[in-house]
């Protein structure tokens, strides 16, 4: 009973906060409305008694939103991020795509023949998740990790207009690097 009430309250909070992301007129409120939505989902995972996944979801999402606050000022030109602004653009396409996806996922959730539970959950869920990720699928995880890092690095390299020749000179021997702004690591 209590779990059902908590579940529905969290479900409403998650959806309402998700809607708020597009309704509010401030970047900060949109960012943290999204964080609230994710936190509600994280607590839902806690209701499934997956403590590790639930807490780690909350941890990652809050951290992500905090970092997004850095990016939103860094990449938004003349800082419209600091002014009231409309959170939507490309409305027709976006509404079409999102209602389509929502309809598909909702239909899937309602129509799929859900399997019956077989066996019982292991006693230590965190341990079981660790084995699942780090046991047989270790190779996949190692490869995925390297690919993700490579993607991030190449994304930043492509986005930055200055190359290593601008920083270290034509023979790459200039130390310290010639940077317009201080900061960064490894110098």
């Amino acid at each position: 009973m209590l779990v059902t009430i908590v579940f529905w309250v969290l479900a409403v909070v998650a959806v309402a906060a998700g809607v708020a992301v597009f309704v509010v007129d401030s970047m900060a409120r949109a960012t943290y409305a999204l964080a609230l939505s994710f936190i509600a989902v994280g607590v839902q995972i806690l209701l499934l008694q997956q403590s590790y996944l639930g807490v780690i979801t909350i941890l990652m999402m809050v951290m992500e939103m905090a970092v997004m606050a850095v990016y939103m000022v860094m990449f938004m030109g003349m800082n419209p991020a600091l002014m009231p602004m409309d959170m939507t653009h490309g409305k027709k396409t976006a509404i079409g795509a999102s209602s389509g996806v929502f309809g598909m996922l909702a239909a899937g959730a309602l129509l799929i023949p859900w399997p019956e539970r077989r066996g019982a959950p292991p006693e230590d869920l965190t341990h079981a998740i660790g084995l699942e990720i780090m046991g047989e699928k270790m190779l996949v995880m190692v490869v995925v990790g390297a690919v993700l890092v490579a993607t991030i690095v190449s994304g930043v390299v492509l986005a930055a207009h200055r190359t290593r020749y601008d920083r270290f000179g034509d023979d790459l021997r200039r130390r310290p690097a010639d940077d317009p702004q201080p900061g960064g690591v490894g110098r």
Binding site: A28, Y32, A35, S51, Y52, V55, I56, I58, L59, V62, M63, M65, A66, A69, D124, L125, T126
Partner: peptide
């Protein structure tokens, strides 16, 4: 007595990121 107490502590200290920034914003 959470079975993931250490992660819980870590999650709360990450919350501080958001909170201090919000107080500044």
């Amino acid at each position: 007595d959470l079975d993931v107490g250490v992660v819980w502590f870590n999650a709360v200290d990450v919350m501080v990121w958001a909170l201090v920034w919000l107080a500044g914003w």
